[in-house]
Computed example of a mutant assay.
Amino acid sequence: MRFGDAQVSIEPKVPLERLFYLLARGREWGNWFEQSVHLDTIANLYPAIAEGFATWAERVFRTGVVRGYRTVRAAEPAIRGRWLVSEQIRVRQGLPLPAELQYDEYTSDIAENQLVRSAARRLVTFVGLPDSVRARILRIDLHLGDVTLLTRGEPLPSVHFDRRNYRYRPLVALAELILTNGSLDHRVASTAASGFLLDLPRVFEQFVETEVTRAANPFGGEVVPQFDSALDEDGHVHIRPDLVWRREGRVQAVFDAKYKAEKPAGYPNADIYQMLAYCIRHELTTGHLIYAAGNSVPPRYTIAQAGIEIYCHSIALDQTPEEISRQVDEIVATSMHTSSM
């Protein structure tokens, strides 16, 4: 966050290059970021975001700007498309021209390009960008000069991906990230403030969901995120673990992702209480908490009175993507083994 000449930075415990790996995996962008952008030499979040955006945009636009049909309603001096006669009478009071029309136009001014250009405009306001990166982003903005900029505060348009625009998918995802999280942009008198903030617990949760689903695939069944049920018989106390693994209509394993930058008060007691409730509700003898490594926790808690064991797993996010995937594979294998005991 930047206030005039002062800047406040919140450093994640995840290395920057791994932070974008978590984003790419959790939001199912694939491994494009790891292949396309080298972040180990970039020390600041803003330049890293801008570098990734510029690199992928340049790759996408090598084959041209995608175009599509957009429905247009306009008043024009010549008739084309559908003439809205009732609208003509209401608005023009019987005058034949300009004609109130509706037609489909084949144009570059579609949602995909609107998101990209608006994100480029947002990026150039970030402080601390290298001149070379800023120049690349300005070229992207110029390349999309006929595209409408999105209005700040309005909901972002949705994009349906198919073979025509699939190459845009990572770029649009990064544009949405920039427009959604770069939400602070305020000016009071001569002091300007701007910021970009990522919800790391949510990023970690999405990553765990994607990776656990991948690792559980060979075991059959299905992994269900945010599985809603009730703890009490009357259905008043709702519980919703991050992930459950179901097979033959029954919950076989339950997981909860916990990203904690430091040890909060009572850590990890509240996590244990929560997992204990999940296990009791689904009649499980084991539950699995998945932490981002950084705070040490005992590997296992035994609640003898309930006959339940709660396993605490840590993922070292400073490792290579291959090693991180291997850690998740081990966690899932352990959970499948304990669920069958």
Results as ranks from 00 to 15, higher is better:
residue 185 D to V: 15
residue 98 P to W: 07
residue 102 Q to T: 15
residue 261 A to V: 12
residue 221 G to V: 03
residue 194 S to A: 10
residue 123 L to S: 09
residue 308 I to F: 01
residue 10 I to E: 13
residue 41 T to A: 12
residue 139 R to V: 04
residue 276 L to P: 03
residue 146 D to L: 02
residue 99 A to C: 12
residue 309 E to Y: 03
residue 235 G to P: 13
residue 226 Q to Y: 04
residue 159 V to C: 00
residue 294 G to V: 02
residue 52 G to H: 04
residue 143 H to W: 12
residue 35 Q to T: 13
residue 242 D to S: 07
residue 341 M to Y: 08
residue 250 R to I: 14
residue 115 L to G: 00
residue 84 L to K: 14
residue 282 H to I: 00
residue 265 A to W: 08
residue 95 L to M: 12
residue 156 L to M: 03
residue 67 R to N: 07
residue 287 G to T: 06
residue 213 T to W: 01
residue 21 Y to C: 04
residue 214 R to L: 08
residue 85 V to S: 08
residue 181 N to K: 13
residue 226 Q to N: 10
residue 65 V to A: 11
residue 2 R to A: 08
residue 302 T to D: 14
residue 287 G to C: 08
residue 340 S to P: 01
residue 157 P to D: 02
residue 207 F to L: 00
residue 310 I to T: 06
residue 254 V to A: 05
residue 248 E to L: 12
residue 297 V to N: 04
residue 261 A to T: 11
residue 300 R to L: 15
residue 164 R to Y: 12
residue 206 Q to I: 06
residue 253 A to N: 07
residue 85 V to H: 04
residue 251 V to G: 01
residue 310 I to V: 10
residue 139 R to N: 08
residue 244 V to F: 06
residue 70 R to I: 09
residue 265 A to R: 15
residue 31 N to D: 13
residue 80 R to I: 06
residue 202 R to L: 14
residue 294 G to W: 08
residue 83 W to H: 14
residue 260 K to T: 11
residue 192 A to W: 06
residue 75 A to V: 14
residue 138 L to F: 04
residue 159 V to W: 00
residue 278 Y to H: 05
residue 274 Q to V: 05
residue 146 D to I: 03
residue 17 E to W: 15
residue 79 I to H: 03
residue 9 S to I: 15
residue 29 W to G: 05
residue 163 R to H: 10
residue 313 H to N: 01
residue 48 A to N: 09
residue 169 R to Y: 09
residue 289 L to D: 02
residue 285 T to I: 06
residue 144 L to S: 01
residue 191 T to M: 12
residue 139 R to L: 07
residue 188 V to W: 15
residue 84 L to I: 06
residue 202 R to T: 13
residue 178 I to R: 07
residue 296 S to K: 11
residue 245 W to F: 13
residue 232 D to F: 07
residue 209 E to D: 10
residue 218 P to H: 05
residue 64 G to Q: 11
residue 324 I to M: 10
residue 35 Q to D: 14
residue 113 N to G: 04
residue 48 A to V: 08
residue 2 R to V: 15
residue 78 A to D: 15
residue 36 S to Q: 13
residue 60 V to N: 02
residue 181 N to W: 15
residue 108 S to C: 04
residue 275 M to N: 07
residue 121 R to E: 15
residue 321 P to D: 13
residue 217 N to A: 15
residue 339 S to Y: 00
residue 22 L to W: 00
residue 38 H to K: 12
residue 117 R to D: 00
residue 251 V to C: 02
residue 213 T to V: 02
residue 319 Q to T: 10
residue 155 P to D: 03
residue 119 A to Q: 05
residue 321 P to N: 09
